[in-house]
Design a protein around this nucleic acid. Structure first.
Length: 860
RNA sequence: GGAUGCUUAGCUCAGCGGGAGAGCAUCGCCCUUACAAGGCGGGGGUCACAGGUUCGAAACCUGUAGCAUCCACCA
């Protein structure tokens, strides 16, 4: 027997372990079923999981559990990401608290620390997955740095290299001076920062003229190789070709003309620093300049900066500007807001810098994606608009810088011969005495990109899992990592397996705080899912997520809503407790027999069928919020408030009527539980096990099926008349200042809506008497299609009249509306016939009611 | 500079071509034997604005405004 109150913690205890032991999460237990597969977006082993993870994985778990119920052999692969930069930064931070740097430990020692860190956080993550109830297949768990993934990474790297799609080159890359590593373009976040625009005077050699050049980055002037103007710019036409003096170091550099320069920007004259700016780099190449680096890897000035050597780039900027000012070459300083690149991880200002790195040549790979998206093997996004995010990026993508100057990650399989300097890229282990391996590791996303196929055994394409579960069915992830992850999985998969890695991508938004702000450490507004679970239970948290997420949209975390979810679960819990009590221990479930159903039974079963149909349809479209609210309405209104209350009367009539009612209660309750189960597996398991005739677990039950033979429109209509009567009487009492349980006498005419309906009416309205009158009722009766009802209590006639007049007004409005519609030839000829018929029927009905209403008013 | 999304009840949000919905909040009444973490009843909205398409628009199209996000090498 269920307890009187739903206690989430008591309910949740032990269930997950049981499911896991029984092997319910394991894929491939019944190969006769259709496969359905997903991979978890591997969380970083940097720390605890946050609410965003809770949302993402809850959605996946709903899908997994639903698909199992519907009859699929579901594989949901769990795993974690080594998260190169992020984890290394955490470990280094920890070390620095002990006064150590990674260089003190050396590569090997540091990696040991990193692995310790990984194990610690992997444990935390595992326990959080268990708390959340995720039905992942632990027998197939993977890690992005495990043996298999590492082999896949090496294979991909070597293959792409041999195909000419990976190359080593010297280009301007984004350098994070704090973490001291290169970054890819998308790891740089551009922010609008306030800065200064410095205008300096450059003397032109051999003349008494000068020109003014504006820059935001004076400290890079030591690396300048020219000043450029636009060839069409008349201001400088006579000066082009002469030398000008760099006010930073007094060196002579040429004044040149190139179309690239925008005449209208600044002074129209631009300094060129080929080693510290991507555009200047291109100019440098075009004109064969030297590439002079003046800033080092820690963002300090090097020897090129002469007296400024050793200064931080900003210190140097300040000192240099002061000096130029002293020299009389500073014209003015303007405040400007400009876009400055920051490292996604360290938030330090990224230094564009010439550097030798490894790159993936993106164009051919991206073109494959774009072509695929036009065909039948395309990846379908939910919502659809996110496909454009992918294709737009793919069509403008630049080469991907994949090498990182870190230790934690997949080491690049490139070796240089110590004696000859020969470079070899190979999957084989090379003898370290002869060959020196590249020091760098790969971008984390390089390995994550292989996740959907490498976790299934690839590059071995003959493994059972790869053959059965690849391509995967669906991927669930946030819109913020479409570039980082989704796009890269797609192009790697297309290139290496010739298939898209998944058929569908379900995109969700971010979870924000109650004020709509992003949750962040600096704001301290983060919510720990574990705290929420402590307070309300996992199921309430899961239900909150289910009910409040709309595909592709951000969601706010609102504590009271989780509370509301818990209350809802308590409601269902109590309904179940009632059903359980009613059925008793001897009850044996029987299928619904259409022929034996009473009006109320037939009506609730009809509504159940409609609910099953629409819920399934929404579930299939991944509209969980929609699905759960359709269910909510059915559970709350149709089942709890209506049928369940009414069943109390039927049950008091012992015999066949009571038996049928029990069958209906059982069926509806069980179907409700089975439909809510994917959202809130713990409570529903507990409730399920309290019902008679249950199996070992709810996980062995199939999803409810829609049966069109159980549709009964007439019964629903009759019920709606009864419910209308009840509502009118309740409202009548309320507006007349009577207590809800005040006794009233009722009359109906010319008959009751269905046999026995009077008993329900009486009970639901606390009527002391109930009588059927053959003839029409005068005065204050309520009207329904074909029926009248009257409350025989003395009430203030003024209130009554007011009520009737209000009713008349709305009726007249309704009638005129219908007449207007039906009088519109366009509507009658163009609207669907059923709409027109519906409107006609409404008009007739309302006209009839208005007629009797007028009589009543006259007789008052 | 491009692109996308949002603007609906006091608050947070669904709905996205056939008569305005939910949760919370609010007001009134009720300990009715599943649930007071409850029940019953009520109040509250020219669905941002302006045009257009349609028999019919909160929903579709085009603009406008405000907010948000993403992309972009403007020195």
């Amino acid at each position: 027997m269920l307890d009187k109150h739903y206690d989430p913690h008591k309910v949740e205890e032990g269930k997950y372990e049981k499911w896991k032991e029984e092997g319910y999460f394991q894929a491939g237990r019944d190969l006769s079923k259709q496969p359905f597969s997903m991979v978890i977006p591997p969380p970083n082993v940097t720390g605890k999981l946050h609410l965003g993870h809770a949302m993402d994985t809850t959605i996946e778990d709903i899908i997994a559990r639903y698909k199992r119920e519907v009859g699929y052999d579901v594989l949901w692969v769990p795993g974690m990401d080594h998260a190169g930069i992020a984890t290394q930064a955490k470990v280094e931070e920890k070390l620095s608290k002990q006064g150590l740097s990674r260089f003190d430990l050396g590569r090997e020692g540091f990696l040991n620390k990193a692995w310790e860190w990984k194990h610690e956080y992997a444990d935390t993550i595992h326990s959080q997955w268990a708390k959340m109830g995720l039905s992942v297949d632990y027998t197939r768990e993977r890690f992005t740095l495990d043996e298999g993934l590492s082999a896949a990474v090496r294979h991909v790297f070597v293959t792409l290299y041999k195909e000419g799609l990976i190359y080593q080159g010297e280009k301007i890359i984004n350098w994070d001076p704090e973490l001291r590593t290169a970054l890819s373009n998308i790891e740089v976040i551009h922010k609008d920062d306030e800065g200064e625009f410095y205008y300096f005077k450059y003397d032109v050699v051999g003349t008494d003229k000068s020109l003014i050049v504006a820059t935001t980055r004076p400290e890079t002037m030591f690396g300048d190789t020219a000043v450029f103007v636009n060839p069409k710019d008349k201001k400088y036409a006579d000066l082009v070709g002469k030398m000008v003096i760099n006010p930073a170091n007094g060196e002579e550099i040429p004044l040149m003309a190139d179309e690239y320069v925008d005449i209208s920007f600044g002074t129209g004259a631009m300094k060129c620093t080929p080693a510290h700016d991507p555009n200047d780099f291109l100019l440098g190449k075009k004109y064969g300049f030297k590439f002079i680096k003046c800033i080092d890897e820690t963002a300090h000035m090097n020897e090129i900066a002469g007296p400024y050597k050793g200064m931080d780039r900003y210190e140097c900027r300040k000192a240099l500007v002061d000096k130029i000012k002293e020299d009389g070459h500073l014209v003015k300083i303007e405040k400007i807001v400009h876009s400055v690149g920051h490292s996604e991880r360290s938030d330090s200002v990224v230094e564009p810098m010439l550097s030798k790195q490894w790159f993936v040549k993106m164009k051919p790979l991206a073109e494959k994606v774009l072509a695929t998206q036009k065909g039948s093997d395309k990846v379908n996004f939910v919502p659809r608009r996110f496909e454009k995010v992918l294709t737009r990026w793919m069509s403008t993508v630049e080469d991907w810088c994949i090498s990182r100057q870190l230790w934690w990650g997949h080491r690049i399989p490139a070796y240089t011969n110590i004696k000859t300097g020969e470079l070899v890229v190979t999957e084989e282990e090379m003898d370290p005495k002869e060959w020196k391996q590249d020091e760098d590791v790969l971008d984390t996303w390089f390995s994550s990109a292989l996740w959907p196929f490498a976790t299934l055994g690839w590059p071995d394409t003959e493994t059972a899992d790869f053959k059965r579960y690849f391509p995967t069915s669906v991927l669930v992830t946030g819109y913020d990592i479409i570039f980082f992850w989704v796009s890269r999985m797609v192009f790697q998969s297309l290139h290496f397996t010739d298939k898209s890695p998944f058929h569908e991508v379900v995109i969700h938004g971010l979870i924000r705080d109650a004020q709509g702000r992003k949750m962040s450490k600096s704001l301290g507004n983060g919510v720990d899912p574990i705290d929420v679970i402590e307070k309300y239970g996992v199921d309430a948290l899961r239900y909150f997520i289910t009910n409040n997420c709309t595909p592709g949209m951000d969601m706010r975390y609102i504590d009271e809503k989780v509370g509301a979810a818990e209350n809802y679960l308590n409601k269902i819990w109590n309904a179940c407790r009632y059903v359980e009590g009613v059925l008793g221990e001897d009850y044996t479930p029987r299928p619904i027999d259409k022929k034996t159903l009473g009006v109320l039974d037939a009506a609730i079963i009809d509504k159940l069928m409609h609910t099953i149909k629409s819920v399934r349809s929404e579930m299939d479209k991944y509209h969980f919020g929609q699905a759960s609210s359709i269910l909510y309405d059915f559970v709350y209104d149709d089942f709890c408030s209506s049928y369940l209350e009414m069943s109390k009367i039927a049950l008091s009539h012992e015999g066949a009527e009571a038996d049928v009612t029990k069958d209906v209660l059982y069926t509806v309750m069980k179907d409700i539980i089975l439909m809510i189960y994917p959202y809130t597996p713990f409570v529903t398991e507990e409730m399920y096990l309290s019902l008679p005739g249950h199996k070992k677990s709810i996980m062995e039950e199939p999803y409810p099926e829609y049966d069109r033979h159980l549709i009964n429109k007439k019964a629903v209509e009759k019920l709606s008349i009864l419910e209308g009567m009840i509502k009118d009487i309740r409202n009548y009492k309320s507006t007349n200042g009577m207590a809800p349980n005040a006794k009233v006498r009722l009359l109906v005419s010319p008959a009751e809506p269905f046999e026995g309906s009077g008993e329900y009416l009486k009970r639901f309205t606390f009527a002391s008497s109930y009588e059927i009158k053959g003839e029409s009722l005068g005065g204050s009766s309520f009207l329904y299609p074909g029926y009248e009802l009257m409350v025989e209590e003395d009430v203030d006639p003024a209130i009554l009249k007011e009520k009737l007049l209000k009713e008349k007004e709305t009726l007249e409005f309704e009638i005129s509306r219908s007449e207007k519609m039906l009088g519109n030839p366009g509507f009658v000829s163009k609207a669907p016939k059923e709409k027109v018929d519906l409107e006609k029927a409404k008009l007739e009905k309302n006209k009839g009611i208005l007629e009797s209403l007028k009589n009543k008013l006259a007789s008052l």
